[in-house]
């Protein structure tokens, strides 16, 4: 990873940078798995390696792919970085050793999650129970962030004159490009791809649904599901053209999904409030607390998934709708 990082610094061809970053991200994901953070790994792979890279590529397609020679102010920057790094290393000196089970973080707060979440929430995946219930509010904030980003991208780039989208034009231009790092094979209107992807689509969607509802038991959840769901459409758009994809899910639906997911989440909280609990208390939603928790988590995960999927699609469409 360090090697990739250093290469990133030197590399000027931004397409390579984007791809390398994708790899970097994947490596990080692998590292997460090694360190038992399967949920995080899942997300990182989908987001860092997937969405981010696609976005960067789309941006590059819209702008330029060569970076200029870095200006001469590198020394000052280096100094700042070295000082910061030194400070961090200095800070690590008193840290508990890696993997030490006696470290404070493993002794305080968390034990309760591990010991009692089964009884209190009834969901095997502790990450899910913490995410959706104990710290459900953070997750609401997280969905809001996604919502903000999507709406923000809409505000920045949305509905700017009738243009030929970048993805459509790429299909025309891609033969002319010989050396680009654009994954052109994906874009090529080849029959095999069409068939395979048509076959794949339902599978991906199904997988998304599985991830969505299986999040309680294994790694997964609304966020990952949303990303997968979104990427299914992105794939569709890449192969069949953004124009067609746009017709599959019209703008109004996209926007409705974006808002509705967040609303659903927030309103589940309000429901808890109306039924006598505090905000975001799911236990009161059903007769039995664990059932309530189950119901609540399912609903909010569904909200998360909807918003995230809509956000992914919106962001992608908006980017692909741009013109060079």
């Amino acid at each position: 990873m360090v090697a990739i990082g250093l290469t990133l610094v030197r590399l000027r061809d931004l397409f390579s940078v984007a791809m390398l970053f994708g790899i970097f991200s994947l490596l990080a994901a692998a590292l997460y798995v090694v360190q038992d953070a399967v949920d995080v790994a899942f997300t990182e792979a989908a987001v860092g390696a997937g969405i981010s890279t696609v976005l960067i590529l789309a941006t590059l397609a819209l702008t330029t792919s060569e970076e200029k020679a870095p200006p001469g102010r590198a020394l000052g920057a280096l100094a700042v970085v070295l000082v910061t790094g030194a400070a961090l290393i200095y800070g690590t000196l008193d840290m508990p050793a890696y993997g030490d089970p006696a470290a404070p973080i493993h002794q305080h707060v968390v034990p309760r999650y591990i010991e009692r979440s089964a009884a209190e929430i009834g969901v095997p995946n502790i990450v899910t129970s913490v995410l959706a219930s104990y710290r459900g509010y953070d997750t609401l904030g997280e969905v809001t962030v996604i919502f903000t980003a999507a709406a923000g991208v809409l505000a920045l780039l949305g509905r700017r004159r009738g243009r030929v989208g970048i993805v459509d034009s790429l299909q025309v231009r891609q033969d002319a490009r010989k050396d680009g790092e654009v994954p052109r094979s994906v874009l090529a209107p080849k029959p095999i791809l069409r068939v395979v992807s048509k076959l794949l689509m339902p599978l991906i969607l199904l997988f998304a649904l599985y991830v969505q509802f299986h999040g309680d038991f294994g790694p997964g959840g609304g966020f990952q599901a949303g990303v997968i769901f979104g990427s299914a459409f992105i794939l569709y758009a890449l192969i069949f053209g953004a124009h067609n994809a746009r017709q599959v899910i019209p703008a109004a639906v996209r926007r409705a999904g974006l808002g509705a997911g967040l609303l659903l989440y927030a309103l589940v909280g309000v429901a808890g409030l109306l039924m006598g609990g505090r905000y975001l208390n799911y236990a009161v939603l059903a007769d039995e607390p664990t059932h309530g928790q189950h119901l609540g988590i399912m609903l909010i995960e569904f909200g998360v998934g909807t918003t995230v999927a809509a956000a992914m699609i919106i962001i992608f469409f908006v980017f692909s709708g741009q013109d060079r």
Partner: peptide, 25 residues
């Protein structure tokens, strides 16, 4: 393993991608 940082980072990743999307926009 400690699940809490996982949760935090899940959130942080999302925030990160949101920021990236906006920045690229």
């Amino acid at each position: 393993s400690n699940p809490l940082p996982h949760v935090l980072i899940l959130t942080a990743i999302v925030v990160g991608v949101a920021t990236t999307a906006l920045a690229l926009g």
